[in-house]
Simulated scan of single mutants.
Amino acid sequence: MERLRSDGPLSVEAYMDACNAYYYATRDPLGAAGDFTTAPEISQMFGELVGAALTDVWRRAGAPANVRYVELGPGRGTLARDALRVMRSAGLTPPVHLVEISPTLRAAQAALLGEVTHHDHIGDLPCDGPLLVVANEFLDALPIRQHVGGVERHVEWIGDGLAFDRDGEIVESSPSRDEAVRALAEGLVPLGGVALVIDYGHERSAPGDTLQAVRGHRFAPVLADPGENDLTSHVDFQRVGELAREAGAFVAGPAEQGAWLERLGIQARARALANASPDRAGEIEAARARLCRPDQMGSLFKVLAIHAPDWPRPAGL
């Protein structure tokens, strides 16, 4: 409100950036008691298969000894825990580097994972060896710009509440997202390695308003209670791939998350877990269905790999 009074209307980008900066700095938003649940929190199978995919591509790249595990926006560290367990069982024990700015989540990650190195930005990552990178639901939270008829959309105070200053066919872009993808690809090309980008979004660039707010596992009005809702937008995977290729990286995918997990063997893993814990068989199958079924997370979520030219294409893509 102080910024609106002093500076006038805020761009959608500035509004989303301010809201999410406060939101993530002041809470753990994950799980039943939070606002949303990500794939790693649904089942250990998700992180395990990510770890298996990274281990497989590392081996086919010649098993370099100086590789590092990197995760962008790692939440509580659940995905890293499950992926690293699989990687270590296969003889891969990389140092762990996490890009995270939330003090609350940094503390949770350190408590769960032990020795980790935190970074504020992708550009701060080590640059002396290959990187095995996971970005699960990271890009969707980066701020976006919206334009209507070529004019940037803003948030302003009208009457007794917040409102958008214009409506119509919306075209979205995200300089922050573009910068993150470029930094990631430009780092992988000379160092070697691979990044798995997993997020919800569309395979082809298209106009449309995809900005959304979630609170208590339900959609909320985007302009209600600034800083108290999780604001995200759909990732444009065509744009991500184009930027990575422009930086000299190779791109595989995108593939739908459900199909990717099926190709990596999630059904076999679910059977193994159910056989080990028969009383949890229904829970395990429900989790597999939630991750893979087209009417749940299976189709909306996509997987895209960015990899160095001298590294192989990851499995499943």
Score class of each variant (00 low, 15 high):
155 V>H: 05
151 V>I: 13
102 S>R: 03
109 Q>A: 01
97 H>A: 01
146 Q>W: 08
82 D>S: 03
201 G>W: 06
183 A>G: 15
99 V>P: 09
107 A>F: 01
158 I>A: 12
152 E>P: 13
170 I>L: 13
101 I>H: 10
103 P>L: 04
92 L>A: 06
145 R>G: 05
152 E>I: 09
100 E>Y: 05
188 L>C: 09
199 D>T: 05
108 A>F: 01
190 P>G: 02
167 D>M: 14
166 R>C: 11
160 D>A: 08
84 L>A: 04
184 L>E: 07
161 G>L: 03
201 G>F: 07
124 D>A: 14
207 P>H: 13
108 A>L: 10
176 S>H: 11
92 L>F: 05
178 D>G: 05
207 P>T: 09
130 P>V: 09
196 L>I: 02
104 T>Y: 03
141 A>N: 12
154 H>E: 12
192 G>L: 09
136 N>W: 07
180 A>R: 06
135 A>K: 14
158 I>N: 04
156 E>R: 15
124 D>I: 02
110 A>T: 00
172 E>W: 12
154 H>M: 11
193 G>M: 06
190 P>K: 10
144 I>F: 12
153 R>V: 11
169 E>Q: 15
162 L>H: 03
197 V>M: 12
176 S>P: 01
159 G>C: 03
115 E>A: 10
204 R>T: 07
145 R>M: 06
88 R>W: 01
132 L>V: 06
117 T>R: 14
119 H>G: 09
168 G>W: 12
131 L>F: 07
85 R>S: 03
83 A>E: 08
190 P>S: 06
100 E>D: 00
89 S>N: 08
133 V>A: 11
129 G>C: 06
119 H>Y: 10
95 P>K: 04
150 G>R: 10
207 P>A: 11
160 D>P: 01
140 D>W: 08
84 L>C: 06
97 H>P: 00
102 S>G: 03
99 V>K: 08
146 Q>V: 10
108 A>T: 00
167 D>R: 15
127 C>N: 10
195 A>I: 03
178 D>A: 13
102 S>N: 01
94 P>F: 04
191 L>E: 03
170 I>D: 13
156 E>A: 15
171 V>L: 15
152 E>K: 06
191 L>S: 06
183 A>H: 05
104 T>R: 06
151 V>D: 09
161 G>V: 01
90 A>E: 11
192 G>R: 04
111 A>S: 09
149 G>N: 13
120 D>N: 08
142 L>N: 07
203 E>I: 07
87 M>E: 02
204 R>W: 04
128 D>C: 08
112 L>S: 04
97 H>Q: 02
86 V>A: 11
128 D>E: 10
161 G>S: 10
95 P>T: 01
92 L>Q: 02
169 E>W: 04
102 S>K: 00
